[in-house]
Each structure stands twice: as C-alpha cells, then as structure tokens.
C-alpha cells in the first residue's frame, strides 16, 4: 500500500469516529449539534498541549483529550438542556467558533506556540518501539481499534434502556418527560459521551499529524461529518460509518480530477458545492439514508402465551 493510501484510510477512520459521535447525538437522540468540530478541536488541543507543553505521557494526554471533549459537551449542553433544537443548532455552532477564536488568539506559554502558529512536535505514541517504515500501519491499527471500540460503545448505549430514552427524546421530548424521564440529564449525558468520542478522534488526529493549528478546525469539518451521518442514515451507526467512507472517497477522490495548479481553489470550491448538493438530494429523495434505521424486534407471543 502506498503511504498516501494508509494516510487516507487513517483519516477515514478518524472521521468515522467523529461520525459515530454525531450518530449518537443526532441519529439516536435528535440533538442538532452544529459544533461537532469544537469537540474535535478540544480533544486535539488538550492532548497536544498535554504531551508537548506539559510533558505528559502520551497515554495520559489521550485520556485528557477524551475527558476534555466530554467536559466541553457538558458545558455546551448545560445552558440549553431544556431548549428546542433550533437553539441547540445556534448555540453549538457558536460554541465551536468560540473555542476556535480562543485557541486562535491565545499563545500557549511561549510566543511562537499556540495562536495562529499552532502546536508543533506532537509526539506519536510508541514511536520508540514501533517507529520505522511501518509506523503508519501501526497507527492505522490504533485508529481502527479505537473506531471499533467507539462503535461498540455507541451500539451498546443505543440498545440499552438509556438508549431507548434517547430515541424517545428524539421523537418527542414531551412524551419522554410525561413518562418521567429526565430529558435534560439524558441530553447532557449524550453530549458527554458524544464529546468523549469526538475528543478521542481529535487526539488521534493531532498525534497522527504531529502538528495542528486553528485552520484545521473550520466549521466546514462539522458539515462534512453531518454529510456522513445524513447520507449514511441517521439512526443507524453502521450507516454513519458507511457515510464516512463515501464522503471521504468523494472528498479526496475529486482531488485527482485534474484542475491543475492554477485551478486548485476552483476545484476545492466545486467539491464543497458537490457535497452540499448531495446532502440536499439525500434529504429530499433518500431521507432515511443509504442504511436506514433498523427496527428492534421483540417478536409476538404465540397462541400458547409465550
């Protein structure tokens, strides 16, 4: 495999993790989080700061990134826990922008670290032991393992009675409340879990690239993740993964359709127009996505009463 292909699959895995996080928030719970990239950024920055400036072991930095994402989710959900989803959309997109503005304007310790300079020299895990020509494969394996773990977590959460409450909140928060469910608490928990998963994605991202700056975390990233979930099928976590693969293929595949150097920017714009049109078409003509949500069957009692 060429190094580029490994790179691409690794990035798809990281986006898959982001997509799973949103799948839990939107697909399962109906939360319109337009600030998904905020989680990603918090996870990436916390883990990067921990492992470079603070000199923590990488594992600890990862854990901090995950917890950072969860904490950010809770903070976002606290003021809007009881409000309608249109307010969620506005507040979450604003919160993610706020995080970017803060990191964009804040130096981290020394004058050329943080702010628009970003963070360099983010260490790769187990570089000492596994370093070498095959390191890319090891990192890919790490991402794949994390992706699988996240999938299992999201799937387990969704199938638990807690997940049933989340689904009810998606359908009608009023019914959920009338049946005695604490909707606000459940939403906050969802944002914590979704934030932790996306935070993990961010940590994987920063240690993969070794360098991050605020331009990696534009609101556009959020849109890509949404395209993945909508296309794949909201409410089906496997669909979210399928969506991640397709959007990644589309996004990177169109890079090679030759526009030449001078038209690179035109190509980039048209690529986004394409994805925008795709998401609109899916909403209009395939609203349940390519892998629609599946019903859980409990079976009907037979005549004998069992």
């Amino acid at each position: 495999m060429s190094a580029f292909l490994v790179y691409l699959i690794t990035m798809t895995g990281i986006y898959g993790i982001m997509s799973l996080s949103l799948s839990l928030q939107y697909g399962q719970t109906g939360l319109v989080n337009l600030g998904q990239v905020g989680f990603f950024m918090v996870g990436a920055y916390v883990s990067a700061i921990g492992s470079t400036i603070l000199g923590w072991p990488i594992a600890l930095a990862f854990v901090a990134g995950v917890l950072g994402g969860a904490l950010f989710g809770v903070l976002m959900a606290l003021p809007i826990g009881n409000l309608r989803q249109d307010y969620w959309a506005i507040v979450t997109i604003a919160a993610a922008e706020l995080v970017r503005v803060i990191f964009l304007n804040t130096n981290l310790g020394s004058p050329y670290v943080g702010a628009s300079y970003g963070i360099t020299g983010i260490p790769s895990p187990l570089q000492g032991v596994l370093g070498g020509p095959y390191y890319g494969y090891y990192y890919l394996a790490l991402v794949a393992a994390c992706l699988l773990g996240c999938y299992l977590v999201v799937q387990w959460v969704s199938r638990s009675p807690f997940g049933r409450v989340l689904k009810a909140i998606r359908e009608s928060d009023e019914v959920a409340q009338a049946l005695g469910k604490n909707v606000r608490a459940a939403r906050i928990w969802t944002m914590a879990i979704g934030g932790a998963i996306a935070g993990l994605g961010g940590a994987l991202f920063s240690h993969f690239l070794g360098f991050i700056d605020p331009t990696y975390f534009m609101p556009l990233e959020t849109f890509l993740v949404w395209a993945m979930v909508i296309l794949g099928g909201a409410g089906n976590h496997l669909g979210a993964l399928a969506g991640a693969i397709i959007i990644q293929l589309l996004y990177n595949g169109t890079r090679f359709i030759g526009f030449g150097e001078e038209y690179a920017s035109l190509g980039a714009s048209l690529r986004m127009v394409l994805i925008g049109v795709l998401i609109i078409l899916v909403i209009l003509y395939l609203p349940r996505g390519i892998l629609p949500e599946r019903r859980r069957r409990y079976g009907v009692r037979d005549a004998a009463g069992r």
Binding site: Q85, A89, L270, V273, G276, V277, I283
Partner: peptide, 26 residues
Amino acid sequence: SPILLLIASFGVGIVLRFGAQAIWGA
C-alpha cells in the same frame, strides 16, 4: 420536522457560499 429543514438550509448555505467562491474566487 423543522430539524430537517434546518439541516437542508445548512446544505443550501454551503452550496451558495462555495458556488460564490467558485465564481468569484476566494
């Protein structure tokens, strides 16, 4: 549901913004 319209508007916004970028440059 308004949520679907909201997300569709997100898509329309992207198309408009990047359509403008394709025409008038960045």
